[in-house]
Design a protein around this nucleic acid. Sequence first.
DNA 1: CTCTGTGAAATTTTTCACAGCG
DNA 2: CGCTGTGAAAAATTTCACAGAG
Lengths: 208, 208
Amino acid sequence: MSSERLAELAGVNAAKVRKDLSYLGSYGTRGVGYDVGYLLHEISRELGLTHDWPVAIVGVGNLGQALANYRGFGARGFRIVALFDADPRKVGRKVGEHAIQALEDLPEVARRGRVAIGIIATPAPAAQEVADRLVDAGVTSILNFAPTVVSVPSGVSLRKVDLAIELQILSFYQRRRDGGAARDGVALDGAKSDGPRRDGRAASARAR
Amino acid sequence: MSSERLAELAGVNAAKVRKDLSYLGSYGTRGVGYDVGYLLHEISRELGLTHDWPVAIVGVGNLGQALANYRGFGARGFRIVALFDADPRKVGRKVGEHAIQALEDLPEVARRGRVAIGIIATPAPAAQEVADRLVDAGVTSILNFAPTVVSVPSGVSLRKVDLAIELQILSFYQRRRDGGAARDGVALDGAKSDGPRRDGRAASARAR
DNA sequence: CTCTGTGAAATTTTTCACAGCG
DNA sequence: CGCTGTGAAAAATTTCACAGAG
């Protein structure tokens, strides 16, 4: 497949595809294009997707369950190994193939299962406490879904997922489209349409 | 509050804070800093968070329910107005204050409720079909949580949330920290730690 | 004096454009 | 030939550094 086609499918410039891929090595064939299977393999290897990453989820509400059942973690090397909840009534209940455990067991389980990544899926007020416990248990990568700012010591990676931000981005562009309150001086960057477009036209990557 | 302090809290450079805020207008006071309340107000206005955005969720599995119950949409103007599911057994069941409706009712409900944003929270195989129905119903902003590529006609904004990508980013940096397979020529950018750090040190925004 | 707002410089990212490989 | 790989140019973003407002 040519860089041109890959670019079209990804909604970016062909030169960018070639430039980016060139950082991984010379995996294309001049005059022909790229072998997609081989490319996938090399990219997976570079990103570490061949690695096995034990993941623990803390907070088994709707979101925690959704994450626990999410197909597609497995394909990328993420393996849910434990679920924790502070609610004693939930402890022992099974979600998928895992029984929910008490937060007190976190240190023991995290160490024994070599948990590399902790996911916080609790209500906001519990998030900092849970983060502290994860850090104490030796977890050095944390993904926070709770709608609150959490702090961790240096040496620990923390990322936050804000489920409302994508909606904000969509609404920002919708308001522009509708001429809701157009005004100058604001940087623009199109709401992207990922993947090939049904109508064959490239996603307009920039407004204006 | 000074740009310096805001920058520290956000984990960025103070000049960037000032430069960015300057695009909104001159809301700071020289020698003093910014009035946080006023700043929040102006930013909200600029981002359109004062606007009301009716949202419909299609697919009421764990993720759909999690989204339906997510606190914090409301604060930013997103109002869940309808839930849809293709499973007849779910239709009529209540989730929060909304009864689940049949997919067939989407066009009617979307138009009557002036749905601005549709959220796809279905399994992957149903996503494209749902996207088509949303588009047909006049929805021009779509957020796709299904782990599959969906295409829409131009004129419709589509964004995709991939719950595994954040884990990938965390694991990428963890492998680097552990010296898993360091290699040169790969662009670096630190896994960010958002918010103030417990230990007072700034999040290392870049590796190397 | 302190801290903003902002030109200018530095850096990074993206795109162009083309030599040359298969 | 067609398409990659990549220097070089262009564009965008980030940072510096400082005049000047409060």
